[in-house]
Write a protein that binds this DNA or RNA. Structure first.
Lengths: 172, 172
DNA sequence: ATATGTATGTAATACTATAACAGGTCAAGA
DNA sequence: TCTTGACCTGTTATAGTATTACATACATAT
């Protein structure tokens, strides 16, 4: 296999460009390594179910429903009841390794764990790809609007539905 | 009953300040009147179920689940099966008279129908009140971030969870 | 070894949402 | 007037999403 450098992978260099062509295996490997380190640093455990759940999310590179995940996990010998999937997914979300896309009732792997961020998601209604967009300015605007009412934001979810660049061209 | 002027009601003057004390009956009446006009202008019908659904949402002044709404409607002689509530709520949402809060699997009345807006919601985790915040700058930032990836936004939902001003004081 | 906190497996159930079809209402046009 | 067609409501049935509760197992530190 060819050696891969971080800077050669557009997916890793600019994780917000999920729609762009890139060597996804590299992103996945990279994200998993960072996840391991993060969890260990927090004194928590990336157990087999949790680790495998994250791997599946990373490989899928798209939003997955909890029951899709459950099917995959069960096929690999883990439990086959909903809490198995929900517990792993919830853990990953709490640790910032995955995000919940409420519009889709689905979960997606975080492409840059560790960096503090309240993400914004761009959901293509044609190809179902979910991209994580840089949301710092968005969150800033939201925080400002909230402060105007004396409201303090603790968590936020910002999701947009539309068409990605590729699907726009396909439609035209 | 005392006569109420539009400008005397903080809820109507600044609908984004849902947490502020205000004469809510006035807001509700006002919003309902505007809803009637809007629907008529579009050649659509605000039928009894739809109208009553909107009234209940306005009176509740908080997010309501579809099944809560169904219970209310059924008690008043309307159908008692889920589609009854979902159809009315979906209609109201399509017409911009109600909004869906995905984080809560719930619906809330729009406090300023007719004005084009992609709303941002502030959800107080203590009192469950949902406020509609001015989101124009937020949406602008989101649109800009999306354009950077060539993504075109069609619909968006922006929701923040936290503590409203009142509940912050109560906690302290 | 044992106690403690944490993780997993499973059963049962609750909650949310939609598909599909039947019957009713109403207005426009033959 | 009658009919047609669009739309609205009601109902049955089912699909999809998520949680509670409890039992067991595993890890770590005394």
């Amino acid at each position: 296999m060819a050696q891969m450098l971080h800077d050669d992978c557009p997916g890793c260099a600019a994780p917000d460009l999920a729609f762009a062509q890139h060597d996804h295996a590299h992103c996945a490997h990279d994200a998993l390594a960072r996840a391991e380190a993060l969890i260990a640093a927090r004194g928590l455990r990336l157990t087999p179910v949790r680790r495998r759940t994250l791997e599946i999310l990373l490989e899928a590179h798209r939003a997955m429903g909890a029951y899709d995940m459950l099917t995959r996990l069960a096929a690999e010998g883990f439990g086959n009841q909903p809490p198995v999937a929900y517990r792993a997914l919830d853990f990953l979300e709490e640790q910032g390794l995955a995000h919940r896309i409420r519009r889709l009732n689905a979960f997606t792997a975080c492409m840059h764990p560790g960096e503090a961020h309240a993400p914004a998601f761009l959901i293509c209604r044609a190809c179902d790809t979910v991209a994580e967009a840089p949301a710092t300015p968005v969150l800033a605007a939201l925080t400002k609007a909230a402060r105007h009412s004396g409201f303090v934001i603790e968590r936020s979810n910002i999701e947009a539905l539309g068409l990605c660049h590729t699907c726009q061209e396909a439609a035209a």
